[in-house]
Structures are given as structure tokens and as C-alpha cells.
Design a protein around this nucleic acid. Structure first.
Length: 839
DNA sequence: TAACAAGTTGAATCG
DNA sequence: CCGATTCAACTTGTT
């Protein structure tokens, strides 16, 4: 892998990034050499980007009430709302006028090149919309007025392979979403008398050159990007433009994507180069950025129209060949196999939201979310650990707009002002949460642009991994030392991250043995989406437990996420995962390196997964949805299935599962009698037993969860006790979020009334099967997991229980909750009883 | 908001 | 009196 990587060149700083693109990677670190950023790397890159006419508009004017939904030219805001803004849209040009308008265009160079003179709006896959689109409005308002060609290119580069992991750079699910976005953009343009020129199978430069054979490109407009690969494309496009216009054409880059405009920052009280440093924290950024206003939607267009611009869109060029505009390529044409393509067409029923690509879908979701469901009232966003049990698990607790924002189907400013508008009518915390999330996008975009540059993709990250963003004085030494402590290398500069392919595969395919991780990874594979919280969890697990190169995981995300966004994905990896590596050695007796996380710090790494799992998926509904083979287990065991086999009773150890049939047995589901594994029918009542019998059956039904997980689970906690209502046994147990105590001895409390598994309630009576309640631990364990397959299979298809989580919030658990590994219940019997009845 | 841990600072303590 | 250690208090980071 190292041999095929591009050569390391640390001399490239941000300054040169545009002129001579740097590879995103430094590749694998060669033996004996450490990828160490040079001084040039540490220097902040210059600002080359920004709109072409910086300074034209300084400070956004105050936003008049109700005018913030002004969506600019070609806005495709739903018709029901469009009436409120008379000047909102460019007038539609009737087709009959098209030819006439095109014919009037002055055509000075017609002798050399055939075809009309045009402006080109280059839509990238980060701005597939019409509303609030500065390049688009500039092209249509440019003087002299010329026809405008909207261009989108499916560059094969995005459908190649990632550098380290060799994953598809764009997975099939995202590609399908991408297609839908482009098709929708084309439909919107056609509805306005325009069209979208679509090319695929060729790089952007080539596409432009091909375009130039039939039209004369005068100028091109696009949004600016900040990452190296995107900048490479921009440079390529610019070079081609230079060529086809004989040096006269200009590529106009506008600043978009963020909530705040870069011009506002640059003309603000202090230059951004000063305060945006690699060690800037989000809090500090937020403080600084609060001094700036967010421009209204369509601001740039508004300013131009106010200074005498037209409100009529330029007509598209008159071309007699309809085929010239090209077709939106199929997935197969984009390089996917037929199987992949057809699989991407099928909607996964367990998906959190049935995304459909495109601006109109984005606006519809926005409308539905904010005004229809008024869901900002319940918005949670990413994670809220100040309120216990609060999780972003249901459909409305996050906006589900992230794919639309990533593809630019939705302007963040529109979202911002809509949220503000909602906040005016109904003040709620969700508005602040949502705006906060939008500011995270700004944070990453600006910090990458001004400070991180390509170092975001380096192994040690842009900050070289001090313990906290905020930085250390000598980051490189510091980080090497502690990486060395963690991974046991002898020379601080020589250790390398793991690259084990099989470990990577088990993580990516969701077979690590940790259900919370596996469920998330399976969801990612199946739907291309994962909650933010899950992303953090699997990320920590990947880096700290599996100890693999974090960039492999980031690449996997890049490949699979439908809402993948270069800056956000890599920025989050760097800021949340990479910076949270160990900071110092443990000073406790016998302690090794101390692994720390910014939130609750449990004892060791894997327990973090457990802690977050029990915190945010208290009923294990999420786990069971994606891992139906665990559906029959109580929540605590569904999160930690290895407890089924490895516990204090030696005859039940995993080794017994492997083959010692003498120690196996099964419990009759009807009468609970224990039967030896050899018997296929219950000795007492004749009920048929599980086909394979006992633990072996349990293990085989559990798949990978019949084996120990990929890394050892954290040590059991000791000395934490609760007393069981059913058996009175004082032992380790688990408390569910609804206040019930799950006894470790008799397991009363979970079996029959587990509300999240619909099937169980259907199979057993409401009273709860006496047999199960009387079952001792061994019985319960030996219950055949296949007894309820149909029931369990249907149980995973519903929303995670919002009402249950809400109930949990109302019922504080008696006793002390230890954050981290699991719920530990202290207290006497009456205390538990109080909690159990929900007092 | 409360909650956690890491890091820093400065005073108290010890030999 | 000085250097080294210890410890409490405070700061940072996040919603």
C-alpha cells in the first residue's frame, strides 16, 4: 500500500494549493520516516477564494420582517409560499422568445467558432439547487447579457477509489441520491425555460472543451471549494476555460456553502487569518462569529437587482439538437455493477428517513419539518449529554436535512432564516440547536480554508493532536510521545497505525461483536446514514479499540455516507476522534495509559460503546432493529451478548458452546423444565425443543455474537448491587430507562413485558408467562433464540420508542447512576420498587 | 443548565 | 531560604 502511494511532499503549503494541487494524502508513512508537517505546512494558507468582486457589498442590511425567504432567481420554493415575495423569481422566458433572444446576441467571434456566446454556470455536486445561488444569479445578471448554460459533470474521479482503503469514492447509495439531485435540478431548470447540460464519463475540463465545440464560452461561474481534490478540479476547469477562451475567459468563484459570507469576515473587525488558527475551538469560533450577521437569502442577487439588474433570466442558448444537453447517467453508466445499481434503487425499510434527492425534496422536507410538523420544538440534533436519556433517535429529533445540505439542494441560509422565522412565532430551544449545527459547518469550512488546509488529511491531523483542541505548544512531539505510549513503539517518531484489513472489514461490515457498533455500521451500509452520535461511537471504537489508521475509517464514511461532505466528514474525524487520543499515563496503581474522552470517562475504551449504547438506546431497540438475532434478549444483554456465555459459572463458559455437549441443556418454553441437550422433546410435557439444543443453538443463532467480540469487553464492575423484586437476590443487574431493574440472577422484569419487542408481547400473555418468571438464570439463557423469529423479525421496523424515552425522562431511577459502562442500581428493595412503579 | 476530565496556576507544605 | 512536591481552585471543552 505504501509503495503505491503518492510521494510525500511536505513542502506544499496552502499557498500553493491552488496552483499545484497537493495530494490529499501523504500516503502511508514510510518506515523510518515520520510524516511531519513542515513550517510551510503550519503557515496559514492565503485566501485566494472568495467572490470575484470582494468589497462590493460590505455589511448585510438589516433583514426586513418577512423578507428573509426571498430566495433569489429561479427559486423553487413551493408555490403556496411563493406569493409572499413578488420579486422572488426571475420571470420565466417562454420558449418562443428563446430563439429570438439568442439571435440578438452580439456574436463578434462567430467567424472563428460556430455557436452562440454563452456564460457557463458550473454546478458542482455541492450546489445542486436554484435558490440562493450566487453564481447562477451572477451569470444571469452579467453584462452583457448572454445565454446561460448550466453545466453539471459526473467526473469519473468521484467514482474512482479512495487512496488508502480502495473503497469506492462514491458509494452506490450516494450516487443514486446524486442522480436524483441532478435530475431534479434539470427539471426545475426546464420548468423555467432553461436546461441543464449533463456530462459524464469525462473530467470537467474535457467536458468544458467539448461544450466549447458548439458554443462560445465567455465566462464561467461557480462556487469556491476549499479541499485539495475539489481545488484540483477547479484548476482543471479553469485551465480548460483559459484554453477555450484563448485566455480571455474568467472563472468567477463565489463563496457559498457557509452561513456567513467570507467577505463579511474579511471586512470584519479583525482579519480572519488572525483569529482562525489551527487550534481554534468551536466555542471561540462561535464567539467570534456572533459578531457577524447572516446575509438574507438571495442577498447577492438582491443587491444586484437593486443596482439595476434584470429580473428576467437569460434565455438558454438556441441549439437545435436536444441530445446536446445529455442525459443523467444511470448508475451502471457511472461504473456500478447491475447488482449494486438495483440494490441502490430499493428503499431499505428500516431507514430513518426515505431520502429522495433534489432541491424540491429538500424544500419539501424543510417545509414539512419546520412548518408542517413544527418539529423544531423537539429538535435534539447531535447529542445532548446534559439531559440524561435524551437521544436523537426519532425522525423529528434531527432535521434529516444533512444530505440536502451536503449536495447543496438546500441553502444553509434558507434553513437559518426559516428557523429564525419559526422562532419568532414560537420560541424554542430547537432553533438554537439547529443554528448551532449550522455553525459547525461554518467552523469547519473556515478553519480548513484559513488554517488547516491539507493537514486535515494528515495522519496526525492539523493540530497534531494535543489532548484538546486548543493545542499544545509543541504539538508534534507531544503527539508522538503519546501515540508511542499508546501503541508501544520504541521510537516516538516511528510507530505506525494499524492497517489490518480483516479488522477493518469486521468494523465496516458490522461484525465486531459489539452490537451497538455493528448496528450502526449495518445501518450505514444499508441506508448510507447514521446518527451523529453513532458516528462518534464507531469512530472512537475504530481508533481506540481497533487501533487502525483513522483515515481508513474516514474513507469508509466518505464512501458510504449519503450526506458525505468532505470538510464535515474529515473535520469531524480530526476534531472529535483524533484529538481525543490519550493524553497521559495512568497514575493509578498498575495503570497503563489512560484513555480519556471528553465526556464521561469510563474505565477503558470498549466500555464507551456500552455506555453510549445504554444511554442512548436504553431499550436496545436500535440494536435489535439492525441485529434481529438479538431480538429475544433483554436490552442489557442485547448490548453485551458475550455475557450469555462468559460469566461466573464455569460450565457455561464459551468453551462449552464449542463442543462439550454433556454440559449443554435446554429449557422447555412451556414448562421450563431443563432437558439435556440430547433430548429433542421435553421430558415432562413433550413440547418440542430447539433443533440443535442448548447453548450451541443459542450460539449459532447469534452469529458473531456467539463468539467473543473482536476486542475484549471491559472488565465487569464489582460492588454495585441492586435487589430483585422477583427473587430478592441482591446482585449485579441493570436498570432500564423506564425504571425497571433487570435482575442479573433471575432476569425477571425483562422477558414478557419488554415493550420494544412487539412480538414478545404478542406471543406471551399480558400477565407474563409464569414459566419465564420462574425461570432461573440457566433456563433463561438456554431459551432457544429461534423461538420467536417471526415476532422478532417484525419488531425492528418501527420508530425507536420516543414515548418510552420520554417516560424515562419522567422517571428518575432510584439510586446512583454511574455514567459510563452501564446502569448500576444501588439502594434497598423499597427504593427499587419505587422506581419500578414509576413514582 | 450539569457533568466529566485534563490542564494550569498558585499557595501550602516538606526536607 | 530554596527546591520539590502536593493539593485545591480554577479554566477549558461541549450541549
Amino acid at each position: 500500500m505504501a509503495a503505491s502511494s503518492p510521494p510525500v511532499d511536505t513542502r506544499q503549503g496552502g499557498l500553493q494549493r491552488c496552483a499545484e494541487p497537493v495530494r490529499r494524502w501523504q500516503g502511508a508513512v514510510p518506515a523510518g520516516r515520520v510524516a511531519r508537517p513542515s513550517e510551510a505546512d503550519l503557515a496559514a494558507p492565503s485566501t485566494r477564494l472568495g467572490s470575484g468582486e470582494r468589497g462590493a457589498v460590505r455589511v448585510p442590511p438589516a433583514v426586513p420582517e418577512g423578507s428573509n425567504r426571498w430566495a433569489g432567481p429561479g427559486a423553487s420554493w413551493p408555490a403556496s409560499r411563493a406569493g409572499s415575495h413578488p420579486a422572488e423569481q426571475f420571470a420565466m422566458v417562454p420558449p418562443s422568445r428563446r430563439t429570438a433572444a439568442a439571435a440578438q446576441v452580439p456574436d463578434a467571434d462567430a467567424a472563428c467558432i460556430a455557436g452562440p456566446r454563452v456564460y457557463v454556470v458550473w454546478h458542482k455536486h455541492t450546489d445542486l439547487r436554484l435558490h440562493d445561488h450566487e453564481p447562477l444569479s451572477r451569470a444571469h445578471l452579467e453584462s452583457p447579457r448572454l445565454p446561460v448554460v448550466h453545466l453539471h459533470v459526473f467526473d469519473p474521479f468521484w467514482f474512482g477509489r479512495t487512496r488508502m482503503g480502495k473503497f469506492r469514492k462514491t458509494g452506490a447509495l450516494r450516487a443514486a441520491f446524486w442522480r436524483e439531485c441532478v435530475a431534479d435540478l434539470r427539471a426545475s431548470l426546464r420548468a423555467r425555460g432553461q436546461d441543464l447540460c449533463v456530462r459524464h464519463g469525462m473530467p470537467v475540463g474535457e467536458a468544458l472543451q467539448q461544450l466549447a465545440q458548439s458554443v462560445q464560452v465567455v465566462k464561467a461561474f461557480t462556487y469556491a471549494e476549499v479541499c485539495s481534490e475539489e481545488l484540483e478540479q477547479e484548476a482543471e476547469f479553469e485551465a480548460a476555460l483559459w484554453q477555450v477562451t484563448k485566455g480571455k475567459g474568467e472563472l468567477v468563484r463565489c463563496w457559498g456553502y457557509t452561513l456567513h459570507h467570507i467577505d463579511d469576515l474579511q471586512h470584519g473587525p479583525s482579519p480572519p487569518e488572525k483569529w482562525i488558527t489551527p487550534y481554534l475551538s468551536f466555542g471561540a469560533f462561535k464567539k467570534e462569529i456572533s459578531a457577524y450577521r447572516v446575509r438574507p437569502v438571495g442577498f447577492e442577487w438582491q443587491a444586484r437587482v437593486a443596482s439595476g439588474g434584470s429580473v428576467v433570466m437569460s434565455p438558454p442558448p438556441a441549439l437545435d439538437k436536444p441530445a446536446w444537453w445529455g442525459e443523467v447517467p444511470t448508475l451502471v453508466a457511472l461504473g456500478f455493477t447491475a447488482e449494486e445499481a438495483s440494490a441502490a434503487e430499493v428503499l431499505e425499510p428500516r431507514t430513518q428517513y426515505p431520502w429522495r434527492g433534489g432541491e424540491s425534496a429538500a424544500l419539501a422536507r424543510l417545509e414539512e419539518y419546520i412548518w408542517g410538523r413544527r418539529a423544531l420544538r423537539v429538535y435534539v440534533g447531535t447529542t445532548d449529554w446534559s439531559t440524561s436519556g435524551k437521544c436523537s433517535a426519532t425522525r423529528d429529533q434531527t432535521t434529516k436535512l444533512s444530505p440536502y445540505l451536503a449536495f447543496g439542494c438546500l441553502s444553509p441560509r434558507l434553513l437559518y432564516w426559516e428557523a429564525q422565522q419559526f422562532d419568532r412565532t414560537q420560541r424554542c430551544k430547537g432553533t438554537r440547536g439547529l443554528i448551532n449545527s449550522l455553525l459547525w459547518r461554518d467552523f469547519y469550512r473556515f478553519i480548513v480554508h484559513y488554517a488547516w488546509g491539507n493537514r486535515m488529511f494528515h495522519l496526525y491531523g492539523p493540530m497534531n493532536c494535543g489532548s484538546v483542541p486548543g493545542g499544545h505548544k509543541e504539538p508534534t512531539k507531544w503527539c508522538c510521545k503519546h501515540y508511542n505510549n499508546l501503541f508501544g513503539g520504541s521510537d516516538p517518531r516511528l510507530w505506525s497505525w494499524g492497517r489490518d484489513r480483516e479488522t477493518l472489514r469486521s468494523w465496516a461490515e458490522g461484525t465486531t461483536g459489539y452490537p451497538f457498533v455493528d448496528a450502526a455500521m449495518l445501518e450505514l451500509r444499508a441506508t448510507g446514514y447514521m446518527q451523529h452520535l453513532s458516528r462518534e461511537t464507531v469512530g472512537w471504537f475504530f481508533v481506540r479499540d481497533l487501533r487502525l489508521d483513522w483515515r481508513l475509517a474516514a474513507e469508509w464514511f466518505e464512501s458510504r455516507l449519503v450526506d458525505y461532505d468532505c470538510v464535515l466528514n474529515w473535520g469531524n474525524w480530526v476534531y472529535f476522534i483524533l484529538t481525543q487520543l490519550p493524553a497521559r499515563m495512568d497514575d493509578r496503581p498498575g495503570g497503563g495509559p489512560r484513555y480519556t474522552l471528553p465526556l464521561y470517562s469510563p474505565y477503558l475504551m470498549a466500555s464507551q460503546v456500552l455506555g453510549w449504547g445504554s444511554e442512548h438506546d436504553p431499550t436496545a431497540a436500535y440494536v435489535k432493529r439492525w441485529l434481529p438475532q438479538l431480538g429475544h434478549l433483554p436490552p442489557a444483554l442485547a448490548r453485551e451478548p458475550w455475557r450469555l456465555f462468559a460469566d461466573s459459572e464455569p460450565e457455561l463458559k464459551l468453551s462449552a458452546v464449542a463442543g462439550d455437549s454433556a454440559t449443554e441443556f435446554w429449557a422447555c418454553t412451556a414448562c421450563t423444565l431443563e432437558n439435556p441437550a440430547a433430548r429433542s422433546v421435553c421430558e415432562a410435557c413433550g413440547t418440542r425443543g430447539p433443533r440443535c439444543g442448548g447453548l450451541a443453538a443459542a450460539a449459532s443463532g447469534l452469529g458473531v455474537y456467539g463468539r467473543p467480540p473482536i476486542v475484549p469487553p471491559p472488565p465487569e464492575e464489582s460492588g454495585l448491587h441492586g435487589s430483585c423484586l422477583a427473587c430478592g437476590h441482591v446482585s449485579l443487574g441493570w436498570a432500564g430507562e423506564d425504571g425497571r431493574f433487570f435482575c442479573g440472577a433471575c432476569w425477571a422484569g425483562w422477558t414478557a413485558e419488554e415493550p420494544m419487542v412487539e412480538g414478545l408481547a404478542a406471543v406471551h400473555s399480558c400477565e407474563g408467562p409464569v414459566a419465564l418468571q420462574r425461570a432461573d438464570r440457566a433456563h433463561a439463557r438456554a431459551l432457544p433464540p429461534l423461538a420467536l423469529p417471526a415476532a422478532v423479525a417484525t419488531s425492528g421496523l418501527r420508530e425507536p420508542g420516543a414515548e418510552l424515552a420520554a417516560a424515562a425522562l419522567r422517571t428518575p431511577i432510584q439510586g446512583e447512576r454511574k455514567r459510563g459502562a452501564r446502569w448500576a442500581v444501588r439502594g434497598n428493595r423499597s427504593g427499587v420498587a419505587e422506581a419500578a412503579v414509576g413514582a
